[in-house]
Design a protein around this nucleic acid. Sequence first.
DNA 1: CTGCTATCGTACCGATCGGTTCGATCTGAG
DNA 2: CTCAGATCGAACCGATCGGTACGATAGCAG
Lengths: 197, 197
Amino acid sequence: MPVPKGSTLDPDRTRAAIIDTAMPILYERGLDGVGVAELCTAVGVSKETLYRHFGSKEGLIEAVLEARSERVTRWLREAVEAAGDDPADQLAAVFDALSGWHAEPGFRGCALLNAGAQHHGGPELDVAGRHLERRLALLTSIADRAGVPDPGALARQWLVLVTGCTVVADQHPGTPYAARLARDAALTLLTTARPTP
Amino acid sequence: MPVPKGSTLDPDRTRAAIIDTAMPILYERGLDGVGVAELCTAVGVSKETLYRHFGSKEGLIEAVLEARSERVTRWLREAVEAAGDDPADQLAAVFDALSGWHAEPGFRGCALLNAGAQHHGGPELDVAGRHLERRLALLTSIADRAGVPDPGALARQWLVLVTGCTVVADQHPGTPYAARLARDAALTLLTTARPTP
DNA sequence: CTGCTATCGTACCGATCGGTTCGATCTGAG
DNA sequence: CTCAGATCGAACCGATCGGTACGATAGCAG
């Protein structure tokens, strides 16, 4: 076994440490708001190490965003799973989870959407698109369970609400509790879409 | 009259020309994606002139975003006014206007929201907030006319839909016609909110 | 004509950026 | 102990950035 595992020289560990440390800094200051040198000193790593792992600043950004998307997706899925079997409860759990996130001190909007807006032509936009696709899949599973006639359309309406309330919560101080309003709207759409026996 | 009006040396004209030319470039390439020198050559103006008018790149950006917000707000208000007196028609007109915008070739999301995401701490976020405030005012006027019990809450739900469908249309290729889905959702919310006599 | 002002074109500044290179150092495998 | 690979620290590179300075020019008021 030529590669040491778990040691201080473990490349996987170094890579994970870079991602974990760089993530909040890039989220807080923006992709273009912080240089590679500063990221390196924050992580406690040399530039050579960072470039050997990620090849370029772009590569680092992609890795950070991918890790973020996976983390957020898992977090939201767990919130849904903890809400029981009722689709309405699951849907409410999504927006309640968002409510808590929006109220956190360091909340600055969705890191993926922000990145897609910042480097619009680049790979960040693709990462953001895949992120929304994962989120749509989660919402579609809820709509499927609810047995509505067109679960795909309803899930996409929910996706618009989820995305919109996060942006509004971030950028419009005149709308607090945007997630709560979106939750009510989503539940109304669910009720209206359900076949009335 | 020491200031020439309408001549090629008219400062107001120069200022407007700089804003008009810089606006699509900053929108397309991002606030940090284009330098002041390139903007100057695109406008056909010297750096000294640009800096005398706006003081800094930040000042130029603020002026451009402010002009953009006013233009977009006027455009949407006119779409509403052209839709007649029925609140439902006015609401549908908002999302239909958005549909057409989203389908335009150079569509890259809302310039104000993108700017707020790019320079998150700075004045751009305030401009984006004021932009959403203007949009909320328009939606609130529709909700008022509809005579719903809580027009402020309904208008804010519509604001979430408007914002969300624009972001989704930009960043999620898997959801085409996001504005049409949002339109249906908004009309459903309106119908549900109306008192049933 | 005489100013005044807006503008141009260019050169220039210091700072920062992303990225590369290299010798020294440390760690763990064998 | 020896060796290979991972890392460090710092110097270094060319390019670009936002912003400034200056002499020349052009249009208008008086």
